[in-house]
Amino acid sequence: MRRSIFKAIAICATVFSASIASAETFTFTAIPDADESRLNERFGKVADYLTEQLGVDVKYIPVKSYPAAITAFRNDQVQLAWFGGLSGVQARELVEGSEAIAQGYEDQFFKTYIIANAATNLIPREEFPVALEGKTFTFGSKGSTSGRLMPEFYIRENTGKSPEELFSRVGFSGDHSRTIALVESGAYDLGAVNYSVWDIELGLGKIDQSKVNVIWTTPTYPDYQWTIRGDVNARYGEGFKAKVTEALLNMKDEDLLASFPRKSFVPASNSDYAPIYETGKSIGLID
């Protein structure tokens, strides 16, 4: 009863504040999974591209973390966001009517690498490695799909234990690059890292494979996607959502795509992320 009163007041207030805002700028945010440097510069170009395509003023605001992105999305500071799998699900839970409209080509079959320091003497194998008990382990950021959710899910599925039970110590590095650095230095024995970050850093020669290597790869799952608020058509004109989707799918400029970094964008829908939602629920990250 009380909750519904709160809700009614909230809706009234939203309608009120929406009606006073006019000639709006369309704002988006994005946290790439690798290389967070010079976000403004790189995504400023994406904003320019969208401005050109959509005919409204498009602005980019940089954020630091998934929760910050979710908050900005919920508070209507951004209307479009490039979320991770889990953060997208969380955001769409909070904002009614919001929708996943596109994902990266690579995000259709994303995967996570379990990496190990050489001192552990673990070797790469097909099946889930068994001798992990008692080692130290670091995830990436707490809200990351590839750095936390999926690896935790597969650890639980394959061992029947929570990470805290299985490992002598579980950490959260906060970032994929840092996960690699920490496992390479031996601060942690093992880590879970986004495959695309690993492949890129390996290509750049940043990883010393005599010290750290991939020992297992998870099955594929859907990850990053563009999510848009449900009320954009009402605010920016009929068919605006479709226009945004089209602009994203038609983004062909290598330079723009490299910021994410993705080969191209392909269509996506909320239902593509049902497995992520279920996984989040099963390990208690979503109520």
Binding site: D35, S37, K64, A68, R178
Partner: peptide, 23 residues
């Protein structure tokens, strides 16, 4: 800046996290 406000910490944290130690 560590939690996202546009102060010096924003760049410091990002660069440090990414391993761009010169930056």
């Amino acid at each position: 800046g560590f939690i996202g406000l546009p102060t010096l910490g924003f760049h410091l944290e990002t660069a440090f996290k990414q391993g761009d130690y010169s930056e």
